[in-house]
């Protein structure tokens, strides 16, 4: 791969909630993380307020290419966790009993 592309890896952001770059993902794979769910959790992909809307598929593609796995297999354990968007605590405590 050309030097220019390698340099880009350092600045191309995959997860905007947690500032994860292409390079962060490649480094984590090189470190020995060989499962997408472990990688995702390690880099906190999908942990931010957007719940992984933009990063998960991009990261899964990078992981699939690096590991030779199919993208469906890579994503088979991924599950969206509620709430879909951040909710204020106030919404839940109004009039609630303990």
């Amino acid at each position: 791969m050309g030097e220019a592309v390698k340099k880009l890896d350092n600045v191309v952001i995959i997860c905007r909630c947690n500032d994860v770059t292409v390079n962060d993902i490649k480094k984590a794979i090189e470190m020995g993380i060989d499962d997408f769910e472990l990688l995702r959790k390690y880099l906190r992909l999908g942990f931010g307020p957007c719940q992984g809307r933009s990063c998960i598929v991009l990261a899964a593609r990078i992981f699939a290419r690096a590991s030779g796995k199919k993208i469906d297999e890579v994503l088979s354990n991924y599950r969206v966790r509620p709430p879909i968007v951040p909710v204020s605590a106030r919404y839940f405590t109004r009039g609630a009993e303990a």
């Binding site: 951040p86 605590a89 839940f92 405590t93």
Partner: peptide
């Protein structure tokens, strides 16, 4: 969520202003 929040918010009132982002 309300069961967990209500007592904790009595002890730490700032919790009424936080945003909940995820649950598992």
């Amino acid at each position: 969520i309300p069961h967990i929040l209500k007592p904790l918010k009595e002890l730490l009132p700032f919790l009424s202003r936080v945003n909940i982002v995820r649950y598992w």
